[in-house]
Amino acid sequence: MNPMNYVYLSALLFSIGASGVLLRRNAIVVFMCIELMLNATNLAFVTFARMQGNLDGQVIAFFVMVVAAAEVVVGLAIIVTIFRTRRSASVDGANLLKY
């Protein structure tokens, strides 16, 4: 089996995650789709590490995980704060910057 299949899988998961960001209205679900995208890129990095024969891809994937964790922390804190004032977690609520 061609290791490129992993990369195709990664592309597919990335596309699904991206469409989820565009389509879901619940802020937390949007965030989860972003996590899905990050995971897809992680898979691609690990595959590239394996394909190249060095561990750089894995190191990068590791850093991605760390940063994703930090990002989740802050992002969820923001969502909670917004929820406290607005009583709603819909991303469509913040629409004042319009024409």
């Binding site: 960001v21 469509d92 913040a94 910057l97 319009k98």
Partner: peptide
Amino acid sequence: LRRLQTGFVR
């Protein structure tokens, strides 16, 4: 064109 600025994040 300014209708592109819908204000929606999505």
